[in-house]
Write a protein that binds this DNA or RNA. Structure first.
Length: 227
DNA sequence: TTCTGATCATAG
DNA sequence: CTATGATCAGAA
């Protein structure tokens, strides 16, 4: 799909939130029609389609820049598929896990912390039994981690980064971490990137990414629905 | 049924 | 390959 600007970038956070709230209740088919793009049959070959569609409606920067969606506002946009009860159906990708060049990297200056400092969550019905075009957008949530949430994230990040730095990247599984996990993030299982081996030597290994577990995002969204 | 590892498209 | 956007689908 071709990235296009449907609306101008929002000048401030309040405008962004108002605009996001105005999308609630619409179906993806309606939003696609307004954007002048075709709704795919399913997401198997268009996994980022929903995210790109909402980016267009919210005036996020198009393309693949290594910046936040609303750089001038310091806000990151995340669409999250939810079930009929508003519970997340998938984990949430945060960013690629750096496997080398980590000297001097701390939680405070980490990519994970910066990406999650301010997030606009857009829940979207994600039940695969629902045709893509008839899935509805839910009420958005503009969020920053509470001190407790940030502490959970920091502890997992430190544990996982320790393993990477100590040459144990290939022993990391999705079971590590309470709320933040590391899983493959690649085109396929043949993709390789540089990492650190057991004896500190350079190795080629699968690229990994940080993901938020559903156990983290579920209460975050639930709290929102209670307010 | 849930979760972990694998995968898809596109731009640069 | 890396970064953007994530969901798929087989194994447990």
């Amino acid at each position: 799909m071709e990235p296009r600007f449907l609306v101008a970038p929002p000048p401030d956070e309040a405008t962004l939130l108002t605009r996001a709230q105005s999308l609630a209740g619409y179906t993806l088919g309606e939003l696609a029609q307004q954007a002048g793009i075709v709704t795919p049959t399913d997401l198997r070959r268009d996994k980022g389609w929903v995210g790109m569609l909402l980016e267009m409606h919210l005036g996020a920067s198009a393309g693949s820049k290594p910046e936040r969606d609303f750089a001038h506002l310091g806000v990151e946009l995340k669409t999250i598929p939810v079930d009929a009860q508003g519970r997340p159906l998938e984990t949430t990708f945060v960013c690629v896990a750096p496997l080398t060049g980590n000297s001097g990297v701390t939680w405070q200056n980490s990519h994970v912390r910066h990406k999650l400092a301010r997030v606009l969550w857009m829940p979207v019905e994600g039940d695969r039994a629902l045709p893509l075009a008839s899935r509805r957008v839910g009420a958005p949530l503009l969020w920053s981690p509470s001190p407790e949430e940030e502490d959970l994230l920091r502890r997992d990040w430190e544990e996982l980064m320790d393993m990477i730095v100590l040459g144990q990247v290939e022993r990391i599984t999705a079971r590590h971490g309470e709320v933040l996990q590391i899983r493959p993030k690649a085109a396929n299982s043949k993709a390789l990137t540089e990492g650190i081996g057991e004896r500190g030597e350079p190795i080629m290994t699968l690229p990994r990414g940080f993901y938020l577990k559903k156990s983290f995002t579920a209460p975050l969204l639930a709290r929102h629905f209670l307010l």
